[in-house]
Design a protein around this nucleic acid. Structure first.
Lengths: 205, 205
DNA sequence: GTCTATATTCAGATAGAC
DNA sequence: GTCTATCTGAATATAGAC
């Protein structure tokens, strides 16, 4: 692990480079040469540290997929009110993607294009407990008469759709609207509150 | 065009095969051999009919991108009320994707991974008039006091997000919820009305 | 651990017979 | 128009010196 220092350094330089290239190009589009260049080493080193392209990819994918739903369970377990839970999840989720705009498309795309690899590693990376918790929380709120009846699955889908999709569709949005990166960024900042209120507005009684 | 018959037949067999393979695997992941196999011809034929892989891809991409927003302008020009316009756009959009589940991810992904190719061909395929029309229609509805004030861009993003994202996230949704294809299909059918009402509920005064 | 050189495999593209 | 055989280049992976 941290035995030498030089080793670890090279290894982490490779991982950093691989993360960049895989997330930007995907498994099929990534080139080992490209990863080597960005890590400022040569191709042989890649295979010295990691058996092959696929192994390296799985590592990056698992790590990335693990970041997709950060600390949501914690938020759901907190003693915030239901609406505030929605507000905080939406806000922190969009912020995560402002920081890593490629993240949602990368994960979705690889799970579609490489089902075996994707499924296996996503499953290992993800603690899917938060979905169950979220559903329960929604059902309770319905029982309490706080919100209108709705299939929890649809509500969850609506929420993550509105958070994630704009990042996936960014190039299309820029083309259709003529906006630039900075304006896009502003829009996404606005959505941190807008999306939550849009949802709450719709379901509150 | 329709000169011979055999020619046209081979050409359209290639296009059918290419559509399948490109949409499923993407430009980087697609193999000419794979396309040839599905078209039940050999690789040489591909290059006889189409100069190279990229040309063939651009053709398919342009054609596909053109299907992304079907007859929305017509709907927006109709004399339906604003809410009914939303209802019909949502419904027909989701139906389009029930028919072609790979469509949204394919277009979004290629525009991200191959910006030059994507941008150029998307632009040619798309009449972006409907966005302007939609924005205007929303602004009028706000002026009339029919709906609450909202940045039209956000409303449009919300709408298409909720329509398209579940298809992009399908493998993840199946994994996180444990549902199967048939149930997924049912959920999407439900969303044809649910999403529209969710939106209307949120913005109506 | 790191490098250069090389092997190997794969995929896009072409030549040329029919 | 269609096919078989082949070329070429690219990309992954390995051998072996230092």
């Amino acid at each position: 692990m941290t035995r030498k220092g030089k080793d670890t350094n090279t290894e982490s330089k490779i991982l950093d480079a691989a993360r960049q290239v895989f997330i930007e190009k995907g498994l099929a589009g990534a080139r080992m040469q490209d990863i080597a260049d960005r890590a400022e080493i040569n191709k042989a080193m890649l295979h010295y540290y990691f058996k092959n392209k696929e192994m390296l990819f799985e590592l990056i994918f698992r790590e990335t997929a693990g970041k997709l739903f950060p600390h949501f369970e914690m938020l759901l377990d907190s003693d915030l009110g239901f609406f505030d839970k929605i507000r905080s999840i939406v806000s922190s989720y969009i912020e995560t993607m402002v920081q890593n705009p490629y993240l949602p498309l990368f994960v979705m795309n690889e799970m579609n294009k490489n089902p075996e690899i994707g499924m296996k590693n996503f499953f290992e990376a993800q603690k899917p407990g938060f979905v169950k918790k979220f559903r329960a929380s929604i059902e309770v709120s319905i029982q309490e008469g706080l919100i209108q009846p709705i299939n929890p699955l649809h509500l969850i889908m609506n929420m993550f759709s509105m958070c994630a999709f704009p990042f996936i569709a960014k190039p299309m949005i820029k083309l259709l609207t003529g906006i630039e990166d900075e304006q896009f960024r502003n829009l996404m900042d606005q959505r941190k509150v807008l999306v939550a209120e849009f949802i709450i507005n719709s379901i509150r009684k």
